[in-house]
Nucleic acid binder design. Structure first.
Lengths: 189, 189
DNA sequence: GTCTATAACGTGATAGAC
DNA sequence: GTCTATCACGTTATAGAC
């Protein structure tokens, strides 16, 4: 048996992904969850509070997925390839990155969980890249941390391009090209 | 002497950049431009029409800038470096890419001018990259068009990261790292 | 804990005077 | 071409019954 609170958070996660923060109203969330106004304002201070709760959960889920893909004992370069190579539907956008364009990203309660995921991801990627460089599988032309941030930028920009062109594969082409380039730098010291 | 119509478009361009489409109201634009409701609805069908007009202008301006930077007779790799190396304030976001996250990107009147800029930019970059590969300055590990789209993704993702981290330099680090990697692939056939 | 009723405000648009 | 007055509707939130 799910509580109305859970229903509200679940609906918020779905609608925030589909529409973003500003375009999602408390009414929309109530309708989608089957909960009334009373439940909404009993469990949460308001729209911002519920959205923050939802984004905290999304951030935690995505950190878990990234950790599963990137923190194994597979060689570093293959961990990166495995993460980058996940097939994504670019038209849906990133569940957290999509808020970057909204004015509400300035709101700390929304920005903090989002930021936390991206820092976690950068750490995981940087570690894998450092492994690859130590193993001689990746050219050391740049710092692991800098390469990690570049890879995250390719992913986020891939979502942007997919949405602008209405082409869900644009992001997958961008990551594939990046991986090819990374491998083409070769193993030179 | 500027007409109220010009004032409205100018204000719309500014506010759309700062706040996006959904968070900008006709009232905001009227206040910022010094025009009344009457002028607004005399010159434009409504908010969507004015926003489309504003984005058409922004798209044209950005195509002009990109062409100036990328369509010279400088060697291909240096044209790419010159474009990518432009110092950007990442916190402000891309004047066109920022709309990718909004639900309103599905509206053709908004999406078309945005899409047009990104296609123009991809063509310019691909041509420069093809030049570089022909000149032996860039490894031919990937198609020019694919590399071009990857570079645009780095830029757009750089804006996303800058806004999420509140760090205007994040985008400039991402482009610098990308350029370093591109150069590190070397001139091998 | 959940509901319905209501309120104060803002949004996007129209009407009609000047 | 520009203005002010007005409107119908939606948003976010509160009040109070059950």
């Amino acid at each position: 048996m799910t509580s109305k609170r859970e229903d509200l958070v679940k609906a918020a996660k779905k609608l925030l992904w589909e529409r973003g923060y500003e375009a999602t109203s408390p009414r929309d969330i109530q309708d989608a969850s089957g909960a009334g106004q009373g439940s909404f304002y009993h469990h949460f201070d308001g729209k911002l509070d519920l959205a923050a709760t939802a984004l905290e959960e999304v951030s935690a889920e995505m950190q878990e997925v990234a950790t599963a893909l990137l923190a194994s004992d597979v060689p570093g370069l293959e961990r990166v390839a495995r993460f980058l190579g996940q097939k994504r539907n670019g038209r849906k956008g990133c569940r957290l990155g999509r808020f970057a364009g909204e004015a509400s990203i300035l709101e700390p309660k929304l920005r903090v969980p989002i930021k936390r995921y991206f820092e976690c991801l950068a750490n995981l990627l940087a570690a894998a890249i450092a492994d690859a460089q130590r193993a001689g599988a990746l050219h050391a032309a740049a710092e692991p941390r800098q390469i990690a941030e570049m890879l995250i930028a390719v992913l986020q920009g891939g979502f942007v391009l997919s949405r602008i062109h209405g082409d869900k594969e644009a992001i997958n082409r961008a990551t594939a090209t990046t991986m090819a380039l990374l491998r083409a730098t070769g193993a030179r010291a």
